[in-house]
Design a protein around this nucleic acid. Sequence first.
DNA 1: CTCAACTAGTTGAGCCTTCAAATATTCCCC
DNA 2: GGGGAATATTTGAAGGCTCAACTAGTTGAG
Lengths: 172, 172
Amino acid sequence: MCDMADTPWLSDAEQATWRAFLEVWRLLMAQLESELQHDQSLSHADYQVLVSLSEAPGHRVRMSDLSALALLSRSRLSHQVRRMEEAGLVVREGCPTDRRGSFAVLTELGWQTIQAAAPGHVRAVRRHMFDHLTERQVRDLLDMITPVVEHLRTTEAGSHYQSLWQRQATTG
Amino acid sequence: MCDMADTPWLSDAEQATWRAFLEVWRLLMAQLESELQHDQSLSHADYQVLVSLSEAPGHRVRMSDLSALALLSRSRLSHQVRRMEEAGLVVREGCPTDRRGSFAVLTELGWQTIQAAAPGHVRAVRRHMFDHLTERQVRDLLDMITPVVEHLRTTEAGSHYQSLWQRQATTG
DNA sequence: CTCAACTAGTTGAGCCTTCAAATATTCCCC
DNA sequence: GGGGAATATTTGAAGGCTCAACTAGTTGAG
């Protein structure tokens, strides 16, 4: 935009990579959301909540833990779960040992929904991402991302999206 | 979640990479948005529009081209530019040669704003991302992303976010 | 010409997200 | 065992985003 010799500007390679990163994210998410919506009328947030619950013992997870698992802010998750409860995909249950807390629990409908949605979504993730990468690249990508994520968990935004990486699930 | 031998499930490495990718994106964007908001009261969308305009000759770009440059859908850009016009960062001008079209043009305030915001934002991108990668990794990352982006441009969502990669800017 | 098809851009309604504040409960220290 | 700090979650309002519909202007075939 302008060249100020004293600012830590990005190199050409960095700039190209950054732009590609922004673009791949938008396109990838737009495509995945669109397929999920078309196939099962689910948003990606719905999907992440359903998967997180389906992987948990008893298909039940405390809201805070779910917020960490599904990568949603607490407030957003609360609204999200209310909508999903209205849609019959989950129910909320109070926690007996800590009456502030509550569990989100998968319903039968929620369980059937995620089972129906998962194979198609996984195929889509493959088709749009992993099919274009070698095994080697997948590992390298993880090696690149890991230190970045670890750094970000120490930041303001990281602590806002707090948990999981410094939290033990409250299982009951 | 369940193991069906006939579905193209993700390998452990792929699953870990996918999850890390989702997480790094959320944390990175949350952090960058938060710094941008704190330092200059700008959203990332504001920033991308300002940068795209500031890089264009005459600081003016047709709406469709801007939509491609800033990676925003046409509708979103339209709302975005209206808000930015209200804030005095840009103005809209009609296109004389095609009266359907319009240009977004950077104002003096917009220009000062992007000049004030850019160094800090670039530093933040460095600090939160590129400082954690070697030069080699930056190049490798671009090499990985490139075929994925190219594939996505051919998809439904890609053509919805149409342009730029198959568009020549309408400069006047 | 002229009409249909296409393109550029905007709009409004409705849903989703964010933010800050509220509620309810538990913890812990004197 | 009382009271303030901390925790878990919800809520409502304000504003952003998406979708589909709309306006307006251009193009091109016949």
